[in-house]
Write a protein that binds this DNA or RNA. Structure first.
Length: 281
DNA sequence: CTAGGATCCTGTCAGC
DNA sequence: TGCTGACAGGATCCTA
């Protein structure tokens, strides 16, 4: 689920609550979701919080770093005086905690709590030595984010490939941060079909893709990703935050806002894919 | 090396 | 009502 904008939103929202907090206790409800020894982080303070691609890194005071990857259904919920929740949007943003999907719970000396919830257990918390972060497989293989690369950079990485453009944009080694939704939104904005072969993409189109990816993700970060804020509307009812900005994703059968045609759903790279066959060539 | 599919896991929904 | 299969905002591993 959570793609770069959601993880960035969590990072921005969470840092004001957790920086300088001391981890007093860690409860591991699901062994699969925790890699490493939790005793290595007990007693340490959170010095810094940053993001690489779709992963979050908590740099600790004792030489360790805690990496969290939300994968498809992960959520992070901070519970103090206020509640801050981000990640996979669902009813249990508002649940009593811990709940059935709580995999890891952190207690801070301040009395505040942080929960890692994950329905499908694909996500994980991993403890690594801070000095080894750059050698971590995930980090080593991660490509550049759209803001760090030019259209020419992207063009060079895909020009010799035969795969569909959608498949390449989902590949985090080629470009970091896009997932199933933002690839569809990026290609919709670029007027490029998800089925186009990489080797057919011109350098100008690659330029357009980078431009659209930045635009689409910036807009989502502005909207606040899938946080509790935009999941619960002002009147207390629950909203589908995707509808706030998605122009193609999840809109099968609806009218394209650009041409008035019908948004179609097909399968590309094994994923549900929404696009406008009229606009996207 | 690449590309495509299976896989990890739980939950929900459509269709019978 | 139950059952079944498809599918879900990710990334890795296996096979050809």
């Amino acid at each position: 689920m959570p793609e770069l904008p959601e993880v960035e939103t969590i990072k921005r929202g969470l840092e004001k609550y957790v920086i300088r907090k001391k981890i007093k206790q860690v409860f591991v409800y699901e062994n699969k979701s925790f890699v490493g020894d939790e005793q290595n982080i007990v007693g340490s303070c959170i010095k810094n919080l940053y993001r690489k691609g779709k992963a979050l890194f908590f740099e600790l005071s004792n030489g360790y770093t805690m990496m969290i990857h939300l994968r498809m259904t992960g959520q992070i919920i901070f519970l103090g005086k206020e509640r801050f929740a981000g990640g996979h949007p669902s009813e249990n943003f508002l649940d009593e905690l811990p709940n059935k999907q709580t995999r890891i719970q952190f207690s801070f000396s301040s009395g505040d709590q942080m929960f890692f919830n994950d329905q499908r257990k694909f996500g994980f918390v991993k403890i690594i030595l801070t000095k080894d972060v750059s050698e971590e497989d995930f980090v080593r293989r991660l490509g550049k984010e759209p803001w760090e690369m030019s259209g020419e950079d992207l063009y060079k990485k895909i020009v010799q490939r035969n795969a569909d453009i959608k498949s390449a944009l989902l590949n985090q080694e080629i470009i970091a941060g896009l997932g199933n939704i933002y690839v569809d939104e990026t290609l919709f904005d670029s007027n490029i079909s998800p089925k186009r072969k990489c080797c057919d993409i011109t350098e100008m189109e690659a330029e357009q893709i980078i431009c659209s990816a930045r635009k689409v993700m910036e807009k989502s970060i502005q909207a606040g990703g899938s946080t509790i804020k935009n999941y619960v509307k002002a009147d207390g009812t629950r909203g589908d935050y995707l509808k706030l900005f998605a122009k193609a994703y999840g809109r099968e059968g609806e009218r394209c806002e650009k041409c008035g045609g019908i948004i179609m759903k097909i399968r590309v790279a094994g994923r549900g894919t929404y696009y406008c066959p009229n606009c996207q060539k």
